[in-house]
Write a protein that binds this DNA or RNA. Structure first.
Lengths: 116, 116
DNA sequence: CATCACGGTATCCTTTTCGACACTATGGGC
DNA sequence: GCCCATAGTGTCGAAAAGGATACCGTGATG
């Protein structure tokens, strides 16, 4: 979980780029974080926002984000279970980064090789 | 090459985050781009800056970056061969994104769980 | 009594990634 | 004649990522 992508980060100054990338990489983490910027979400609320994610993957990604200290998992000892996910301080500090990614993506829209 | 990480990007507004991520993800792309911001580099110059990358991987990553239109590959028909890699306009436009990644990484340095 | 919703696990299997290694062609240095 | 550097390519195989599916306990609902 949350293993660094490079064991040996002897890759000159630019390695912190990869270090950050390693945290938000992971196929769904970017979007999960993005949605959490809007506010606290429950497990199935996230799931509904990500139609193609499986339960297992979502659990995985959330656990990794938690292990990296980016999100906080709050379990309410109830039945049926209630679990809320929210951003930690560290996670919130990623906002400019995620927004930079989104801003670029919005402009350079590689979605359909720029249709229209 | 340069396949989107999600075939179906029906992941609400946040999907452009993943779209961008999909371009600069890939274990070495971030660092490669970072080094190219400093200037044009030859194949082996990049290789020397990334001590742990194999030839095959470096070639792969460069080809994907090229396919995504982020870098330009210039071959000089000489012997021994000379190939230069430089950023395209599109690639250069990623600078704020890469720098945001680096800035966060520098501050939150997950390198050794924040020693000292 | 059967089913749904909740927030997961566990298992299996396929796909993708990535490192190691060998090989290519040419020209220059020793 | 042999090895070095350049910029790759090809193949192999291990490891990791990721998808499909089934299962868990509980309480409310029908």
């Amino acid at each position: 979980m949350a293993k660094p992508r490079h064991e040996r980060l002897d890759c000159s100054p630019g390695c912190t780029v990869e270090a950050t990338l390693g945290l938000i990489d992971g196929k769904w983490k970017g979007v999960i974080l993005f949605h959490l910027f809007e506010g606290v979400l429950r497990f199935n609320e996230i799931r509904r926002r990500l139609p193609n994610v499986t339960q297992r993957m979502l659990t995985n990604q959330l656990r990794e984000l938690e292990a990296d200290g980016l999100i906080v998992r709050t379990v309410y000892p109830q039945v049926p279970p209630k679990v809320e996910y929210s951003l930690s301080e560290r996670g919130r500090s990623l906002e400019p980064v995620i927004m930079a990614l989104k801003a670029w993506g919005d402009v350079h829209a590689p979605i359909h090789q720029k249709a229209a």
